[in-house]
Write a protein that binds this DNA or RNA. Structure first.
Length: 639
DNA sequence: GTAGGGTTAG
């Protein structure tokens, strides 16, 4: 047996008292000191071997630090093995092991260690134990049990414990319980506790409550800035997220990878490449702090393709080193290809990732199924859906059936799509969702299958499943067939249901700035010029034979055609277009992003404007890109 | 000696 390989290295023995490598020279104190802060598994096992030879490995401090060194270097198995071999492990020893697992997301293992500590060893949890364990408890049941423990041991008022409890309730959506704990922390809650409460509000969409906690913080650290930004990005308020990012930079807090990922996600939502390119150079230039890891790389890919530049997304993907190019990065790339209609590339990427030994996830299948949908690849789609379960052991979810329904529906097989939805109820555990019904209705509209559209709509209304999107689609189906009385009926059903149409919002990129408009918006300082331009566009469109599609107007304007025409004329995308026309040099491309599907009237006007002005217009709506050039659109009027 | 808050793909 050779032991030379695990002896302490010369570098470490240099500091030992004798200067030469003497087994007996390693004291327990020395070994403990050498192990402190050690995060290399190799070094830990070298020191471990040396400690064994010196007979000091059973020393409490050495044993504990060895365990920490193994945990820090990712060898949790060795850390646990050591814990198991320790004759009388202390609560501190267990707490350290629990933390090692819970902080890496190994929640089950963390809880198993906790119960072993309590039940097999009869040890009492300390405040440290509870705050290390609480992040690992999955549901409310375990969380409440730990809360009870904390109360019984008079530890629930300890700041770390109270904050961990707050976080536990916050993750379970129990805002009131979280708030009660937070109120107990007055008058001076720690920034960590405030951030936990803020995150709870932010996740629930109570952004104003989150913001007032944030604004009240006397000194803001990196994490609370990130938490607040995340609140905005997760709830569709990318402009506020980016404003916050810029303020963060000015305040002197150095952003980290998380901040950058959040900012990139905000830019992706806005769809404006200029601030994205700026962020990209920011990431590259401040390489001291920000590494191009898997998350940052994926966020960059996601940002570029959502901003309309598939080329830049591919470039970032190609530059990612192999170990960073994980399945998440591949998924982003596949989604990018799908959104831009490059179906063959998406399917080819699927083959490549498999060839590299990566295992697809359910998200991968959403990407490739979307790609099939875009190009009418019905057979490929069917095969992929079947392979999910058969080859990859992934249970298709409602989203996957939704892609399949969309694929069949777009391809004109509306009845088949409907049958699939019907059969889902009996053959799968997935339940049809609003998006699935909406794509089915969209297919009915596209292929003018009014009878089926009506049947579906009746079903949705009768079962309380109709949302603003399905009402809008149904109204459009009737309008396309000239059934005005039915359009009116849908309108009153919608009114009776109390459902409001989600407000449309369009943004236009002007240089490095992004300007947003809602319908009828007059808040911009140049509103007068914008509306003058709008009149000009309207006149031009009329001169070219465009008839305003007043049948699309859902507002309760009854038969007032002039009012309907006016409602159409001030749609958010037209305002964004008008502002783009007056504020960017002639000949440059205009980039517009809308939060909903493109309105058919606006789509027609954008085509005409691209022809008359010779400008390229890049328009991203909720589901795809439209590139308007010389009077036609890359979507082929098919969306 | 040990502990609490923020992140990716539709």
């Amino acid at each position: 047996m050779s032991t030379t390989a695990v002896l302490p290295s010369p570098a470490s023995s240099r500091h030992t008292s004798g200067g030469s490598v003497q087994h007996g020279a390693l004291t327990a104190d020395r070994a403990a000191a050498l192990l402190t802060g050690c995060a290399s598994a190799r070094r830990a096992s070298e020191l471990h071997a040396a400690a064994v030879r010196a007979g000091v490995d059973q020393d409490k401090a050495v044993d504990f630090r060895l365990q920490r060194a193994y945990a820090a270097s990712g060898r949790l198995d060795l850390a646990v093995a050591l814990l198991r071999r320790t004759a009388d492990p202390t609560a501190v020893f267990y707490t350290s092991a629990i933390h090692a697992h819970s902080s890496r997301g190994l929640h089950q293992a963390a809880l198993a260690l906790l119960s072993e500590m309590l039940l097999s060893h009869g040890l009492l949890p300390t405040a440290h134990t509870l705050s290390a364990s609480l992040p690992a408890c999955g549901g409310l049941a375990v969380g409440r049990a730990l809360h009870g423990y904390a109360v019984k041991l008079a530890l629930s008022g300890e700041p770390y414990v109270a904050t961990a409890l707050l976080g536990m309730y916050a993750r379970s959506g129990e805002a009131a319980a979280a708030r009660a704990l937070f109120d107990g922390m007055r008058p001076d809650p720690h920034v960590v506790s405030v951030t936990a409460m803020l995150t709870c509000y932010a996740k629930m969409g109570l952004l104003d409550d989150a913001r007032s906690l944030f604004d009240g913080l006397p000194s803001k650290d990196l994490i609370c800035w990130n938490a607040m930004m995340d609140g905005y990005t997760q709830h569709g308020r990318p402009s506020e997220a980016l404003r916050l990012f810029r303020r963060m930079l000015r305040s002197g807090v150095e952003p980290d990878e998380v901040s950058v990922v959040l900012a990139l996600s905000a830019v992706a939502q806005q769809g404006m490449a200029e601030s994205g390119r700026w962020l990209h150079s920011f990431v590259s230039s401040s390489s001291r702090r920000i590494r191009l890891n898997a998350r940052v790389g994926t966020a960059l890919i996601d940002m570029y393709y959502k901003c309309g530049s598939l080329e830049d997304a591919v470039a970032v993907f190609r530059d990612l080193s192999g170990d960073v190019r994980d399945i998440v990065a591949w998924n982003a790339m596949i989604n990018g290809y799908a959104l831009h209609g490059h179906s063959r590339e998406a399917l080819a990427a699927f083959g490549q990732l498999r060839a590299q030994g990566l295992w697809p996830t359910n998200i991968t299948f959403i990407g490739v199924l979307n790609a099939c949908s875009h190009s009418g690849l019905v057979d490929e789609g069917r095969e992929l859906l079947a392979s999910m379960e058969e080859e990859y052991g992934i249970q298709p979810k409602v989203e996957h059936y939704g892609c399949m329904v969309d694929l069949l529906g777009r391809a004109g097989r509306v009845e088949e799509a409907f049958d699939l939805v019907q059969s889902m109820k009996t053959t799968t555990t997935a339940k049809p969702d609003a998006a699935m019904w909406a794509s089915l209705l969209a297919a009915c509209r596209l292929h003018k299958n009014m009878a089926l559209g009506e049947r579906i709509a009746d079903h949705l209304v009768a079962n309380g499943l109709a949302n603003s999107g399905t009402y809008v689609l149904l109204s459009n189906i009737y309008a396309a067939a000239g059934k005005w009385r039915e359009v009116g009926r849908v309108r009153s059903m919608m009114r009776a249901s109390g459902i409001q149409k989600e407000p449309g919002c369009s943004a236009v990129e002007v240089g490095r700035r992004v300007v947003e408009f809602v319908a009828g918006d007059r808040s911009h300082p140049r509103a007068a010029e914008i509306y003058a331009k709008l009149e000009e566009v309207k006149g031009m469109a009329r001169a070219r034979g465009h008839v305003p599609r007043t049948e699309l107007v859902l507002h309760d304007l009854d038969d007032d055609d002039a009012a309907k025409e006016q409602a159409l004329a001030v749609h958010s995308e037209k305002l964004a277009l008008a502002f783009g026309l007056i504020s960017t040099p002639p000949g440059t491309a205009i980039k517009i992003v809308k939060n909903l599907r493109a309105c058919a009237d606006c789509h027609a006007v954008l085509k005409l404007v691209s022809e008359v002005t010779g400008r390229k217009i890049v328009f991203r709506d909720r589901s795809r890109f439209h590139h308007f050039v010389d009077g036609s659109c890359t979507c082929g009027d098919y969306w």
